[in-house]
Deep mutational scan, measured.
Amino acid sequence: TTTLTYTDEEEARKAAEELKRRGITFTYTKRGGTWEIRIK
């Protein structure tokens, strides 16, 4: 499992869109002031 952490929502959203485009499965979690993208 790879976890990407972002403090900028815009960056996190761009990363999530890129992963979706590649067909990669991930979970997206907001934790306080950070956003976590966990790639399975």
Rank of each mutant, 00 (worst) to 15 (best):
T1F: 15
T1I: 14
T1S: 12
T1A: 12
T2V: 14
T2H: 11
T3K: 07
T3S: 05
L4E: 02
L4R: 05
L4M: 10
T5C: 07
T5Q: 08
T5S: 08
T5M: 10
T5P: 02
Y6K: 01
Y6F: 15
Y6Q: 00
Y6G: 02
T7C: 08
T7Y: 13
T7P: 04
T7W: 11
T7L: 09
D8W: 03
D8N: 14
E9C: 05
E9G: 06
E9A: 07
E9Y: 08
E9S: 04
E9V: 05
E9D: 03
E10Q: 13
E10F: 12
E10Y: 12
E10C: 10
E10D: 12
E11A: 11
E11T: 11
E11D: 09
E11K: 07
A12K: 01
A12E: 00
A12H: 01
A12Q: 01
A12T: 01
A12W: 10
A12L: 04
R13L: 15
R13T: 08
R13W: 09
K14S: 10
K14W: 07
A15V: 14
A15R: 04
A15T: 09
A16T: 05
A16M: 15
A16N: 02
A16V: 12
A16Q: 04
E17W: 11
E17N: 10
E17I: 11
E17D: 11
E17A: 13
E18R: 08
E18D: 12
E18H: 07
E18S: 09
E18Y: 12
L19P: 00
L19H: 01
K20F: 11
K20H: 11
K20I: 13
R21E: 07
R21S: 09
R21T: 06
R22S: 06
R22E: 05
R22C: 08
G23T: 02
G23Y: 02
G23K: 04
G23N: 06
I24G: 02
I24A: 04
I24E: 03
I24S: 02
I24Y: 10
T25L: 14
T25P: 14
F26K: 00
F26I: 02
T27Y: 06
T27F: 06
T27P: 00
T27D: 07
Y28V: 15
Y28P: 01
Y28K: 04
Y28L: 15
T29I: 13
T29R: 10
K30S: 08
K30A: 10
K30W: 08
K30P: 05
K30V: 10
R31G: 05
R31H: 11
R31E: 09
R31N: 14
R31A: 09
R31V: 15
G32Y: 05
G32S: 06
G32N: 14
G32C: 08
G32H: 08
G32P: 04
G33E: 15
G33P: 11
T34Q: 12
T34R: 12
T34F: 15
T34V: 15
W35K: 00
E36R: 04
E36T: 09
E36K: 03
I37G: 00
I37W: 00
I37D: 00
I37H: 00
I37P: 00
R38N: 10
R38T: 15
R38S: 13
R38K: 13
I39T: 03
I39R: 02
I39E: 01
K40P: 14
K40V: 15
K40D: 14
